[in-house]
């Protein structure tokens, strides 16, 4: 088991390195750097102005050097400005290089850099935004998991029955509707004067500080609906399979009540597959978070990703990529380990 975990962490590290290098290379393409200069300097700067702006801020050097600086294996740049001051990666702008400024400042030194759009340290931004998305995901899970399991079990315990058909149709419909469709429909029906119900709010901006049923339910439901159908389908399949096992028939023949057969004999075995699906669904739901957070103006991790990408905010994008790699691989790790715990027939070694 120890070896297995070690190997997984090594893979995680390697993936993060590769991914950040790719992101770094793409965000450092000339047109993207021009975009940085224009959003930071002035939208309507001329080409020579852009060039001097970039050169003065250390963007003009070769890709491996810049990547090395970000990682913290190479010393940060120090560039003399036209007005005689110096600017350095590790100390900002000053009249002269401060003696206590570190030579290297990168990820290895714990410095994730500064976001060019938000003008704040990347670490702090990601922490705040991830916490907000965590809050959203927590409520999504609270709503989605019990609902999906209930639907799946109810549908799977009597395969082919009318309940099964009805619940399966609902699950397929909900999982086949992408968030950008269901979100808009939910807003129109429940939050706008177009239909006139106006039970909830069509924006979740105020939910960042003070989440209530009124301002937070719609985004939560939008994400939950999408994931729910899929998990319910998986649970149903697993449940239906278990219900055909010999030991279930034995239990029934023994005279155990159907209710007890389902709850005591079938459920535990039927939940092994959905557990994996739920864990794998978490990174998948991060996609939905990007759409839903933008749609409902909830400024979490997904929204940050959109802002970072559309403004070519290099260091913030790198931070976001690392977090994504960790989330994806960590949930897979948990699902693997959990699978072993739940099913003694499987071993990771």
């Amino acid at each position: 088991m120890g070896m297995f975990l070690l190997r997984r962490f090594a893979v995680m590290l390697a993936t993060a390195l590769c991914l950040t290098f790719v992101v770094f290379a793409l965000t450092n393409l000339a047109p993207n750097l021009e975009k940085v200069a224009k959003t930071q300097g002035n939208t309507r700067m001329s080409d020579p102005e852009v060039d001097s702006w970039l050169a003065n801020r250390g963007y003009g050097r070769s890709l491996p050097v810049k990547y090395g600086e970000w990682l913290g294996v190479l010393p940060g740049y120090v560039i003399e400005q036209p007005d005689g001051t110096v600017r350095g990666r590790c100390f900002g702008q000053a009249d002269a290089r401060p003696p206590d400024a570190p030579a290297r400042c990168g990820v290895l030194q714990g410095d994730w850099g500064t976001s060019t759009v938000f003008r704040e340290p990347v670490g702090a931004i990601i922490a705040t935004r991830l916490a907000l998305t965590g809050k959203l995901m927590f409520w999504v899970m609270v709503l989605m998991v019990p609902a999906a399991l209930t639907i799946g079990v109810l549908a799977g315990m009597r395969e082919g029955s009318r309940t099964d058909r009805a619940l399966s149709s609902v699950s397929i419909l909900s999982t086949a509707t992408p968030e950008y469709v269901s979100g808009v429909i939910l807003i129109t029906v429940f939050a706008s004067s177009a239909v006139g119900l106006r039970w909830f709010k069509g924006t979740a901006t105020s939910a960042m500080e003070n989440a209530t049923l009124e301002n937070f339910l719609l985004p939560v439901v939008t994400i939950a609906l999408f994931g729910m159908g899929y998990i319910a389908r998986m649970t149903r399949a697993s449940m239906a399979e278990v219900m055909q096992e010999q030991y279930i028939r034995t239990a029934r023949l023994k005279g155990v009540r159907f209710r007890n057969v389902v709850l005591k004999h079938a459920l535990r075995n039927a939940l092994i597959a959905p557990f994996t699906v739920i864990m794998l669904q978490i990174p998948w739901l991060l996609n939905g978070v990007v759409i839903v957070e933008t749609l409902f103006n909830y400024k979490g991790f997904g929204w940050t990703l959109v802002q970072a990408a559309s403004n070519n905010d290099i260091e913030l994008l790198l931070g976001v990529s690392v977090v994504s790699v960790v989330v994806v691989l960590l949930t897979q790790l948990i699902s693997d380990v959990g699978y072993v715990r739940l099913n003694p027939r499987i071993s990771v070694t």
């Binding site: 807003i187 706008s192 709010k201 069509g202 924006t203 103006n297």
Partner: peptide
């Protein structure tokens, strides 16, 4: 989004 915001009284 602005419409939603003013409609919701935010």
């Amino acid at each position: 989004a602005s419409l939603s915001a003013i409609e919701a009284g935010e």
